Computed example of a mutant assay.
Amino acid sequence: MRSMAGIALTALLVTAAAGCAGSPEATRTPSSTTPQESASSGQKGPIASASPSPVPVGRTLSLTGIKAGEKLDVAVVKVVDPASGTELSSPPPGKRLVAVQFRLHNTGSTTYTDSPDNGAKVVDTKGQGFDSAITDTTSAGPNFPATTTVSPGGKALGFIVFEVPAASKIALVQFALDSGFSTDVGQWKVP
């Protein structure tokens, strides 16, 4: 004979399951076209970053920040691997520098003020992530300033440098606004 607690638990689970079946989350259907499908069909404009799938280097993603009206179209323009450092920014033995050039276009209604270096990361084929390195410059080109300010409609272009193990193969570049605290993260696959 079943215990009263077991019967009560079963009744509770059945009731909860029936209640969830009618909830909007349980009945939501996906849209017919994902951002990735739009990209493969020849779309030329920015891709909404709702897709967790990375896009090729050169593509533009539309990313939002934490603050109301904060929105940037972000593109990884190129990846320089390896990048040569200067006397003051040469990597230690067993490491190399990778420089990633980003283009930021403020499409929002508020001024973007942040340190783009804090919101960028590279990920290798093993899944190891690497934050930006503090370097003065590389042979790749000028870095973003420590604080970058872009008014609505404005643009900024600069490199972010990463120090990675010499044997790592970089597979992804990631970027998020608000020093990486925004949950809207763009990803680019490195060829």
Rank of each mutant, 00 (worst) to 15 (best):
S49C: 09
I7P: 02
V164L: 04
G153L: 12
R59T: 07
C20G: 12
S40Y: 06
D136K: 11
L157R: 10
W188G: 03
A156I: 03
L177M: 10
A17M: 09
F175E: 09
D124M: 00
F181V: 10
P116F: 10
V74D: 08
G94P: 08
T147H: 12
G22E: 06
G69S: 13
G69A: 06
T33M: 05
F159N: 07
D131M: 00
G119A: 07
G127F: 08
T113E: 06
D114T: 07
T15R: 15
V80F: 12
A75P: 07
G108L: 12
F159R: 01
E37D: 01
T29S: 08
K78N: 08
N118Q: 15
V123N: 01
T107E: 05
L104E: 01
G42T: 14
S115I: 10
A16S: 14
P145D: 07
N106A: 02
V77Q: 09
I47E: 03
V74Q: 01
S32Q: 14
P165D: 07
V55T: 03
S151H: 08
A166F: 11
Q128R: 15
C20H: 14
T138Q: 01
R28K: 15
G42N: 06
E37L: 15
W188I: 01
V77L: 12
D117I: 04
G186C: 00
P92W: 00
A166H: 07
T110F: 06
G153C: 15
V173N: 03
G186I: 01
S53D: 14
R28M: 07
V77M: 04
L104V: 04
